[in-house]
Design a protein around this nucleic acid. Structure first.
Lengths: 236, 236
DNA sequence: GCAAAAGTGTTTTCACTACACCCATGA
DNA sequence: TCATGGGTGTAGTGAAAACACTTTTGC
């Protein structure tokens, strides 16, 4: 350890150091449509304008750790789904100085959200067609994330991170419809999803949207791993 | 401009700056198999060991510009295909100090390669099953890039960046076979590829691998754009 | 008993797979 | 003339798309 501290000051001396930040694009689903979580910026420049949540990274944290921390502080949630989206490094992207930002893309369960944390941060959920102007290049980050969401949810089971632990088939169909922005035939959708055999049906029904009630299902990670091990492809 | 210089020193003061680098994973295709370009490292630590080519980024260049520069210097090529792969930011990933690296993934035409540049850099092409131990986390970067190449070449027409401007159908089939590591039925492969109608057949034949000779084709960008505009999906 | 959402099957269509022979040419 | 790689067509199979009615139950 002391060797690496020594090297640090010797080996790469003379190279320029740069500010590095993470910014998080956070999506949620309110059982009707997909939404984006935005924050009123607290620091200069652009204080009070809408922006993504982010933070500078410190030299003792990896980018992933920093993103995790940002997500935890702003939503109160731990173990949320997130992954790297893209770096944004145009020299003049931030009027406050030269900052390279790594954008992270995150999917959270709205029902688990800690409302206190969110309010602390002056946050609000926006429909994708009502997103306000954002600071710096955050609009680009958001567009990029929306693209990625559409592609990713088709081939990876990431959508379950947007649903409550127990969800109904109509609910997941609405999620996909809201992301793809088109209607889906429910017979074909259910048939395909159930054919994967990666869900467990519970005995409970959700009667909040119909008199008949819809069965609640859980995503079954073990079955999904088996599904993958057999060489099958998830695609919805 | 002077405002931003002023802000730079004021607004984000007190935040830690970090060394940022780019590293490039460069693939080529020698008409037989896909290969990886590696370099003998010139600087401490790990001088003389095999590594990816990279460089620290300066505060007046974006990451993309830096990657482009690195690729130009090491191969002599301009306008090569490259895109961001992933950031690598573990705190102790570099024994020479805290460095965040952004890995770029690049595909080049071996026939256009400037051999002087390559020799200057002590470079060598390696088959994917003969890759030597690499410094730091460069092995991880390479594994990640190989994964990405397999996925990407299936659904995007990036493979043409690995072929000469004019190529034969047997050639492109071998390219795909070498990446997928399995044989492909040539009747089905050709049928599908030609059905996209994104290639232009020239009148020339390549007789270097057979007496009959194989027609040379060119990738037709305009036709490809049309293909995409019609909503069709490239998948090989 | 009726409105409203949940749940279910069949037919058609199309894309992928498997598979075998002829062609052109240089040596 | 023959060895070598280039080039082509067809039948069978399976997944996706299109499509309409029955079930449940709170009001």
């Amino acid at each position: 350890m002391s060797v690496s501290l020594l090297d640090m000051t010797k080996v790469y001396i003379g190279q320029e150091k740069i500010l590095v930040a993470v910014d998080c694009i956070v999506f949620g689903f309110d059982s009707k449509e997909i939404k984006l979580l935005l924050f009123k910026r607290k620091r200069e420049p652009h204080t009070g304008e809408w922006s993504l949540i982010g933070s500078f990274i410190k030299s003792d944290k990896s980018l992933e750790e920093s993103a995790e921390e940002v997500l935890h502080e702003s939503t109160g949630l731990k173990d949320v789904f997130f992954e790297e989206l893209k770096t944004f490094s145009a020299v003049d992207r931030d009027s406050g100085g030269r900052v390279i930002s790594v954008a992270y893309f995150s999917l959270i369960r709205l029902d688990e959200l800690n409302l206190d944390s969110v309010e602390n941060y002056n946050a609000r959920w926006f429909s994708l067609d009502e997103i306000p102007d954002l600071i710096l290049d955050h609009d680009q980050m958001v567009q990029c994330a929306i693209e990625k969401l559409k592609i990713k949810i088709r081939r990876k089971p990431v959508g379950f991170n947007l649903l409550p632990e127990k969800f109904t088939l109509p609910q997941i169909q609405i999620l996909y419809e809201s992301i793809y922005q088109r209607e889906i035939d429910s017979r074909n959708f259910r048939k395909k999803l159930l054919s994967f055999d990666i869900l467990t049906r519970t005995e409970e029904k959700d009667k909040s949207t119909s008199k008949k009630g819809a069965y609640l299902y859980k995503f079954n990670k073990d079955k999904f791993d088996e599904f993958v091990a057999k060489g099958y492809n998830f695609e919805l």
